[in-house]
Design a protein around this nucleic acid. Structure first.
Ligand SMILES: [Mn+2]
Ligand SMILES: [Mn+2]
Ligand SMILES: [Zn+2]
Ligand SMILES: [Zn+2]
Lengths: 139, 139
DNA sequence: GCTTGACTTGGACAAAGTCCATTGTAGGAT
DNA sequence: ATCCTACAATGGACTTTGTCCAAGTCAAGC
């Protein structure tokens, strides 16, 4: 059931109750949780887990490329377990709801050589902003 | 000399030494400073200016659409006086250097209707990441 | 030159995240 | 099955970034 957990174990991770719980919180549905939200859900399963451990574990998952950090607002980073399929994000400016989106075309190719200033460009992060149907209805 | 200052005055802003200094720090070259960097430079010209005033003034300039907030890293917001011409940013992953870039094509148009989930999409923020020539040389 | 509402100030407060000394334990070795 | 130890977890102090507020100051209109 836990792909993420399997991949991490396969990389020689020492498996602890804390790491398992963090992986389980992220696994499954496509969530975009802050570290503190992950911690809150982890505490439900393992009351004594600490905030520092959640931060450490998320950081390691990011280093291993199994989780992606996204900063859609100017507030807390969010942790995205959907690291397999490249995608971008659509964010509601009012309520903060986040959806994965897959634009047509490759934004990287849209950056001409004479706009690269000698950089080796390796990645692009795109954030679309707007109003979600829910917020539009309750305007 | 100060376009920004003129535009702000034209909007009925009460002109104070503090606001003038913040505008002067941002005006001119295309900078992308954090609030605390703006404050440090402002203090050079007006030693008694407070951090709170710099935050207030930047926030007002953003509300007036004369300055743009950009979050290129996951750290402090940066304030961009280049609010006239829409553009995106290219960031060095090692040293944090930021360049304005103007991709060909409109990323907004690259988001198909069936990827909009009913949102009214109004804006898109694109951040390219890579290694700048300087950092590549001193690798 | 007054008056007054808008602006500024410094410090308290808060949110998000890092660091570290101490304590605990997963998992290999015996 | 038990031991060992390197790695992991803990909680609290600390840092960074930003917000808030009560009190004092001042720009600009009269
Ligand atoms: Mn996602
Ligand atoms: Mn810019
Ligand atoms: Zn919404
Ligand atoms: Zn660089």
């Amino acid at each position: 059931m836990s792909d993420l957990l399997e991949r991490l174990r396969g990389r020689g991770w020492r498996m602890t109750a804390q790491r398992r719980v963090v992986a389980e919180v992220l696994d499954g549905e496509h969530v975009h949780l802050t570290a503190d939200e992950v911690h809150a859900r982890a505490v439900d399963r393992l009351p004594e887990i600490s905030r520092a451990t959640v931060y450490n574990t998320l950081g390691e998952m990011v280093s291993l490329g199994e989780v992606i950090e996204v900063s859609t607002d100017h507030r807390a980073k969010r942790y995205d377990p959907n690291a397999h399929r490249p995608h971008h994000h659509l964010v509601c400016a009012r309520c903060g709801a986040i959806r994965d989106v897959h634009p047509s075309g490759n934004p990287l190719a849209d950056l001409p050589a004479d706009e690269r200033f000698g950089f080796t460009v390796s990645d692009v992060e795109v954030t679309y902003r707007g109003i979600c149907p829910n917020c539009a209805a309750t305007a």
